[in-house]
Write a protein that binds this DNA or RNA. Structure first.
Lengths: 135, 135
DNA sequence: TGACATAATGCACTAAATTTGCAATAATAA
DNA sequence: TTATTATTGCAAATTTAGTGCATTATGTCA
């Protein structure tokens, strides 16, 4: 079932901002910062306050729809949480962000579970380097 | 050779702030934020301005001694750069950060090189979950 | 050792990202 | 359509980070 129906079912209201932000993430499939969300919304004619953007992000994280993606930047980025498992490739030159899926991460995860006494629930992997255009 | 000697050799001055910050990182071996650095310095009686902390971090990054570690926080963290290769384990409950070394990351890295057309220079892996105390 | 050159620092600001309080607005149930 | 209250906007406060400039202090060399 889609996010909108889920939110409706659990009692949340579906506002223009909320719907637009969810669609933004569904179409983009990349980590987006709060400022970018605001810019993109403005570009498509959805005029919302930055405060609303921040509050909506917070809400969607609480609802388990978005998650934080920390990048080497002092701006947090966000992404849909239940996308098929994947990780990121970041260009240190132009800032481009791409996805990458990794077969061998299973072993990695198994090793992490074994080598630690943490109750691991999630993990993130990022590769930094130069993208095709920049190298 | 140690960091202090390296800095001296290359002409930098060794101030109380600089020496203290380097020692802080050597003793802590964990990602530390600028604010934490400032707090820790104050606690041991080294009173420096936040500006100095930020400028020193910048300097130590330029000198290849520190590197940025992005966490799920809107505060950047830093760590000594040439520590033996390792990654992080973060408690989603109390914020505890521990190190973890992984044998199988070699395969992962090889796969990443093969599956992408990026010129990968670095990577970071983080596991999120509950630490022994919190689970 | 003492004075000099300049790296490093502090202070007062600025800038950008994020958060909060509260009154106004709008989504939904009835 | 109306009432309830979730959501929003606005203004202002906080937090994190970075700057310009005058002052201080490190390391060098006479």
């Amino acid at each position: 079932m889609d996010y909108i129906s889920k939110l409706k079912d659990q009692g949340s209201r579906i506002t223009v901002a909320r719907r637009s932000i969810i669609e933004l993430f569904e179409n983009t499939k990349k980590p987006i910062s709060a400022t970018s969300i605001h810019n993109m919304l403005t570009r498509i004619g959805v005029n919302v306050n930055m405060t609303t953007v921040y509050r909506e992000i917070e809400f969607l994280i609480k609802m388990n729809i978005l998650e934080k993606i920390p990048l080497k930047d002092h701006e947090l980025h966000y992404e849909l949480k239940d996308r098929e498992h994947h990780h990121h490739l970041l260009c240190t030159n132009c800032g481009l962000i791409e996805d990458i899926t990794l077969e061998s991460e299973k072993k990695l995860l198994a090793e992490a579970h074994q080598n630690s006494n943490y109750d691991i629930s999630r993990h993130s992997i990022a590769f930094y380097g130069k993208c095709p255009k920049c190298k």
